[in-house]
Design a protein around this nucleic acid. Structure first.
Ligand SMILES: [Mn+2]
Ligand SMILES: [Mn+2]
Ligand SMILES: [Mn+2]
Ligand SMILES: [Mn+2]
Lengths: 218, 218
DNA sequence: GTAACAATTTAGACAAATCTAAATTAATAA
DNA sequence: TTATTAATTTAGATTTGTCTAAATTGTTAC
């Protein structure tokens, strides 16, 4: 079976929404896809016909096993390309997502197998997101965000869960990236902000908004 | 301006045909694009509207300067990706063309600039075709095919002008690739075949059909 | 338990790229 | 120079993914 870029993008979006929300409907999906609900309905029928999801009209939809598998291969491609762009071509981590959106649709199992090998089987992309292996399995890691982690421990940044350009730029400003060593000094109850020390630098205060998206290994 | 994959493929095809034939018409182009002449006419109007070519109906068409420039950037991308696939990912030279057909349409000047840098500015792709630089200029080389080159000289294979899989497979069989050293021993008038010695190996005879597509530096 | 509202689907239309069949134009051959 | 042929274009239809406006259904609030 072969799928259009649009179909692949829908499947990937549904996959992500299913993991971020307990309930996913036509409206939510249409917002994520930047289309109208009516267009989503049309596509749902098409995807059901291709057995990528289960769908009962007016009741809801859910990725099928086949759809889930497809989503994972697209995510695998996306994240491997992002890794390539940063590690081999020297892009910044905030520049690679849009490019990976194009590259993830290049279709060749052989290509992705060789790319994975060339990159020496990375387990995480430049934003700390896990890269599924050929079988769709993720490497598990224990991590939590700066709101939940203990004070005064040495922590290593393992992921950033908001990847908007503004966020990544801000983190670059703070000199925070994947792998950065830091320690939480204290939390301020008033606004939820968090004081941290990055490596040997002076202490800094991060807003709650920023802190909640920074994850570190336990 | 941004162009669809289809538009880019038409422009690239026209570019190649203009260099291979003194006259290019709707029929020839439709054969190259594997479509019907009527579809070509539709597309010609679209491409003219985008100023990529000059077109007078029933009289003919020709790439505009802008169209020519676009063709060269697509060819540049195609050949850089082919080089990447062979040199970095270890593909065989007969496997990369179809993949490059997809990759050439990924649109990002920055990406191609960095890829070119990463590959250290290659001047020729894995089949010996020249890679245009950012300005669309080709590195010139003096080369001729095995039917025109002198006997008993040390020659180096610089290009293969037929890149069908069957041809490339055959050459792999003969252990001929870009850079291979060889010497022409003699030519047989009867069928135009050519006897050569590859490096220190035993002599072999190539058919005229094969020999005419193998080019060596003068 | 029903009325109101929100979510979802249908109907009908459009742009892109293609097709088949028919019409038009250019080229060429007598 | 005119008739025939070959190349090209037009007309009208199809598929994919989208839209707007209208209709339908499911869910809540009273
Ligand atoms: Mn991404
Ligand atoms: Mn995508
Ligand atoms: Mn090629
Ligand atoms: Mn192409």
């Amino acid at each position: 079976m072969t799928y259009t870029t649009t179909e692949e993008n829908y499947i990937k979006a549904i996959y992500h929404l299913e993991h971020e929300h307990e309930s996913v409907g036509t409206n939510l999906l249409s917002a994520a896809m930047q289309t109208k609900p009516a267009s989503v309905t049309d596509m749902l029928k098409k995807l059901e016909a291709k057995k990528l999801l289960h769908y009962e009209k007016y009741r809801g939809f859910r990725l099928s096993d086949q759809g889930n598998k497809l989503a994972l291969t697209i995510i695998r491609k996306h994240r491997l390309w992002e890794y390539f762009l940063v590690e081999k071509l020297g892009f910044n981590w905030d520049e690679v997502h849009v490019l990976a959106e194009q590259l993830e649709h290049v279709s060749s199992e052989d290509l992705i197998r060789r790319l994975d090998e060339f990159l020496e089987h990375p387990a995480f992309d430049p934003h700390g997101d896990p890269i599924p292996d050929v079988k769709g399995k993720f490497r598990k890691i224990n991590q939590d965000n700066l709101l939940g982690l203990p004070l005064k421990k040495n922590l290593k940044v393992s992921a950033v869960k908001n990847q908007e350009s503004e966020m990544l730029n801000l983190l670059t400003q703070y000199e925070i990236k994947i792998g950065t060593q830091l320690k939480i000094l204290r939390r301020f109850a008033y606004d939820g902000s968090v004081e941290i020390r990055i490596e040997k630098n002076a202490a800094t205060i991060l807003s709650k908004q920023v802190a909640q998206h920074i994850y570190c290994n336990l």
